[in-house]
Write a protein that binds this DNA or RNA. Sequence first.
DNA 1: TATAAATATTTTATGTTTAAAACAGTTTTG
DNA 2: CAAAACTGTTTTAAACATAAAATATTTATA
Lengths: 163, 163
Amino acid sequence: MDDANFSRPETGEETSDLSKARLRAWLQILRVSRQTEGELREKMRVEYDSTLPRFDVMAALYRAKDGLRMSALSKSLMVSNGNVTGIVERLVNEGMVTRVAVENDRRALIVKLTDEGRADFARRALVHEGWVSDLFAGMNAEDASDLIAILRRVQSRKGQTHD
Amino acid sequence: MDDANFSRPETGEETSDLSKARLRAWLQILRVSRQTEGELREKMRVEYDSTLPRFDVMAALYRAKDGLRMSALSKSLMVSNGNVTGIVERLVNEGMVTRVAVENDRRALIVKLTDEGRADFARRALVHEGWVSDLFAGMNAEDASDLIAILRRVQSRKGQTHD
DNA sequence: TATAAATATTTTATGTTTAAAACAGTTTTG
DNA sequence: CAAAACTGTTTTAAACATAAAATATTTATA
């Protein structure tokens, strides 16, 4: 009953045990995320002479068979608009994607995988899945679904701050 | 019993249900990580006219009272050596850290928080914890410890690949 | 329909970020 | 002790990343 944080509303101005636990969780997410991204980046570089951002763009375009607008692409990848411009530019130079004008809206462009890009991605995606599975060898099926459930709950609260 | 993946060893050449579950888990980690980093970066920029990488460096130095070598710093943050050079450079210009020569090894430098840097960080860290706690409002104490446990198991396997 | 507001994208300026090369200094070894 | 190997850091080149300004176009409004 003498818990220092008992029945005290969270104000964000003081640190409760819960807020410390969340911070620890966040730092652990960050650690795993950085480590994993680093190893995947290295593999992408060595095996395919490519990069993770380019792979991510291709993944988004692979899912969207009819292609995506630049803005839809940047939104789906959660990166800035200007950023996508450069990545797509490189993929165009590599022959992986094309930019097509949009009918009735001369501002917009639709980005699509080329046939080569589609075939390349299909192959790489399988290998990529294997890399992730290897890196996550310590995670069983239950862990995976637990973790996904927890992170979904975190996400669903995003955008709701109390200040 | 007709489970397609029953009793088949993982080879990394084919995709099992488990490997797909791990991939989904990884993508979810990446999503939450990007979203959270984006919101923290924005707050760091608006509230402190600073950046997350600078905050991370200061956090590492705050923990290490006697300071850290450049190499120890980059290792602890899991970023490249050259990267830390630039971030520390800016923190020096802002008066947050100092670089001190190492006795008996003229190659090395120890980076330390200044008194101002230490005081600044102490204040910011509390606010930062509040931001994280707000962003992770959908996570309770049990979720936090479950998630940390799962991610620790993932980490402990890192570096062991089967190829 | 002129003008204003909104939208889609690129450009610019700045700041990470990495890998690899360069540099400086230290340690090992023949 | 000189050469080679190694270690710690910075520099460089290229890519990624953001925010904000600029550009072009479309839509809404007076």
